[in-house]
């Protein structure tokens, strides 16, 4: 039996239109243990959402494998199983979407929204039982079960996101792909939803893939973090290792740009040159070389290999061993 609940191997996704091929996701591999949270960060357009959707098979990947170890200990390639098995296994991998305003059908009641996965997966289940399950789940995510007959417009953003979470949870998934679940919410509501996700994880033993561009949120919730740039994974490591000692210059620049909510902390931003290149026409060699301040001749010609430099530390940079990059210093919490 595999150590990992999910192994993503050499995943590619290409979009072609009018003879132009855009590589949205290029050769991504990483593994997730059961009960872990893996954060995926990167700027808009770097392919994080595409990656998430490929993993749940919401869109077909061009090539690659997503090896999923089911509850019975058998490992399946999630991208290459037949329809019947897929239907059975889909229950285990669910998704929470970014925008709680557009991911709920305004013409369905909350009860119908939450029970829809049950209808699809257990067509023989009795209506009364479904309602019971929905009320249970609603309670669990902090929604008043008496509100289930209402329509989504009657709810605030934070409550809608709870509805989205309830919908994902009702068929007892083992893995949830969260695509920017809190970025559309206000700060105090963000904290509520993040706490809820953490509580549910502890209670139900869930595994999360947490996609976000907000580095503070990712640092808070994740055990491991992957950094994406222009469709490629440039670094993957344990959260504290990645934030305190980044190995890739892009990670370093990204970390230095985060505004820390403490006026006494001095920021030394490492400026990035230029803008994100067009993914339809990526630069030669390392995709990041034009903007990198540590670029050497080799970087412009040869694409760096994504390699395991220490145990559980992956990086794609020629100079990873020699560079001494700056991250955050971890210390005891200051009293507020």
């Amino acid at each position: 039996m595999s150590d990992y609940i999910l192994e993503i191997k050499n995943l590619y996704k290409e979009y072609t239109s009018k003879n132009i091929t855009v590589k949205a996701v290029t050769d991504i591999s990483f593994n997730i243990k059961k009960g872990e949270t893996v954060g995926i960060v990167g700027e808009s357009g770097c392919g994080k959402t595409t990656l998430g959707r490929c993993i749940v098979r919401g869109i077909p990947a061009t090539s690659g494998q997503v090896l999923y170890t089911a509850e019975d200990g058998v490992t399946y390639d999630f991208l290459n199983i037949d329809k019947k098995k897929l239907k059975e296994l889909r229950k285990d991998i669910q998704m929470i979407f970014q925008d709680p305003y557009s991911s709920l059908d305004p013409r369905m009641t909350v009860l119908n929204i939450i029970t829809e996965p049950l209808k699809a997966n257990f067509p023989k289940m009795k209506k009364s039982e479904m309602e019971l399950r929905a009320a249970e789940i609603a309670e669990k995510v902090g929604l008043n079960p008496s509100y289930l007959k209402r329509y989504p417009h009657a709810f605030s953003g934070g409550q809608r996101q709870r509805i989205g979470i309830a919908r994902a949870l009702i068929i007892n998934p083992r893995i949830i792909v969260c695509d920017e679940p809190v970025s559309a919410l206000d700060v105090s509501i963000q904290a509520q939803v993040i706490n809820l996700l953490k509580d549910l994880q502890r209670e139900l033993g869930l595994t999360y893939i947490f996609i976000s561009h907000d580095l503070s949120v990712v640092e808070h919730i994740s055990d491991k973090v992957g950094v994406m740039y222009l469709g490629k994974m440039v670094e993957f490591a344990e959260t504290e290792a990645l934030f305190s000692k980044p190995l890739h210059p892009y990670t370093e620049a990204l970390l230095s740009s985060v505004p820390v909510a403490d006026p006494t902390v001095k920021m030394n931003r490492i400026p990035l040159k230029g803008e994100i290149p067009n993914p339809a026409n990526p630069p030669s060699g390392c995709y990041f070389h034009e903007r990198c301040s540590y670029c050497v001749d080799k970087c412009t010609k040869v694409a760096p290999e994504y390699r395991e430099i220490e145990k559980d530390r992956f990086v794609a940079c020629h100079r990873a061993e020699e560079l001494k990059l700056k991250g955050f210093t971890y210390d005891e919490p200051k009293a507020i």
Partner: peptide
């Protein structure tokens, strides 16, 4: 206090839970 407590600061030791203001 609630607003500042609900933002996680990178580099501070990880708290299990963020402080959150209940309700909306």
């Amino acid at each position: 206090i609630g607003l500042i407590g609900s933002v996680h600061k990178i580099g501070s030791k990880r708290k299990e839970r963020l402080y959150s203001i209940e309700g909306t």
